[in-house]
């Protein structure tokens, strides 16, 4: 009885959370579609780009984008295309936006993935260590470093690393994206420096979160109790880490959001041909279909990550489950 009602509650929670995510994405899609009309000037002329438009071309683009119909109808046509994977054509190159993105998504996924791994393997252990020795010289040094790291801008750190590790010490390549491919060692080698740049900023954030979470757990009564019962330090540590893991894991949505914002700057800094640099140059050229596609996809990835993390937390942790259901 109790088990089935719990399962029912979990399903209910997931359904509500899923509905909220879809509502959020719907709202974002409206805003993203509205970008076309936010840009100063006639949308039809904007869609034709810098070329002097002929009346025939203007009429064609108006018909293609249904610009003479009401806003909601235009939106309907656009979102219909988006849901079938059609984001229109790039103003700059004329190629299909979906194909252009497919060419560039690999690098961004690799960069974000590498930066994420670097962040987790460095910041989480450091955060745990700093919390266990709170107030020590080590803690204060790393914490001060994290304050600098959190505030340090990606592009400045990137260029300084590029100069120091790339130019001076010649440890890493200073230019290019390497040979493409999921298993291309050359590509990964080219991504080490940009990923390190991203990991410094985001690692500082994850370090702070981990340290706070572990410190909060260490002050809980169950730790004192476990110690007084004579549990080994190892066993106590295992308990603390398991409990501190939840707030750190649920902040992953935030980390992803930071990561995607950061990849724009990292890709531009290191002249990498990924989604982020593509967005930056498309904004400069007012290539609106590309901007719409990247903005919407980023929002979807972040929202779905946050959803997945929340669901995992509810399924894995009974305390979160109880809180979510009350």
């Amino acid at each position: 009885m109790a088990a089935s009602s719990t399962r029912h509650g979990v399903v209910h929670f997931i359904a509500v959370r899923l509905a909220a995510t879809l509502a959020l994405l719907l709202a974002v899609s409206f805003v993203v579609f509205g970008l076309l009309h936010l840009t100063p000037g006639d949308p039809a002329r904007n869609l034709l780009g810098p070329r002097a438009p002929s009346p025939a071309a203007l009429a064609a683009v108006r018909a293609q984008y249904h610009l003479d119909r009401p806003f909601l109808i235009q939106y309907g046509y656009w979102i219909g295309g988006v849901l079938s994977g059609d984001f229109g054509h790039s103003i700059r190159s004329g190629e299909a936006v979906t194909a252009a993105l497919a060419d560039r998504v690999q690098l961004t996924v690799q960069l974000a993935g590498l930066a994420f791994v670097m962040t987790v393997i460095s910041a989480v252990p450091l955060g745990v260590m700093a919390a266990r020795r709170a107030g020590s010289v080590v803690d204060r040094t790393v914490s001060a470093g994290a304050v600098v790291g959190v505030g340090a801008p990606t592009y400045a750190v990137g260029l300084l690393l590029l100069y120091w590790l790339g130019q001076r010490l010649r440890w890493f390549p200073v230019f290019g994206s390497g040979r493409p491919g999921w298993w291309s060692a050359d590509r990964w080698w080219h991504l080490v420096l940009p990923a390190m740049t991203l990991a410094i900023g985001i690692g500082a954030l994850v370090f702070k979160l981990t340290r706070t979470a572990v410190l909060a757990e260490l002050h809980q009564d169950y730790v004192t109790f476990a110690r007084s019962r004579g549990l080994s330090e190892r066993a106590v540590r295992a308990l603390v880490l398991r409990n501190a893991f939840i707030p750190v894991a649920t902040s992953l949505g935030l980390v992803f959001s930071f990561l995607f914002g950061g990849t724009i700057l990292a890709e531009v800094t290191f002249s990498l041909k990924g989604i982020g640099a593509y967005l930056a140059s498309s904004v400069t050229f007012k290539d609106i279909p590309v901007v719409q596609a990247i903005t919407l996809l980023t929002a979807a990835v972040i929202a779905l990550t946050a959803l997945a993390v929340d669901v995992v937390a509810v399924v894995a942790d009974p305390r979160v489950r109880r809180r979510a259901m009350s």
Binding site: G261, G262, T298
Partner: peptide, 16 residues
């Protein structure tokens, strides 16, 4: 829900 850098880039860029 969105990275600040991205929104600022897109809005400020498209507005001019």
């Amino acid at each position: 829900a969105m990275p600040t850098t991205l929104v600022a880039l897109v809005v400020a860029g498209l507005v001019g």
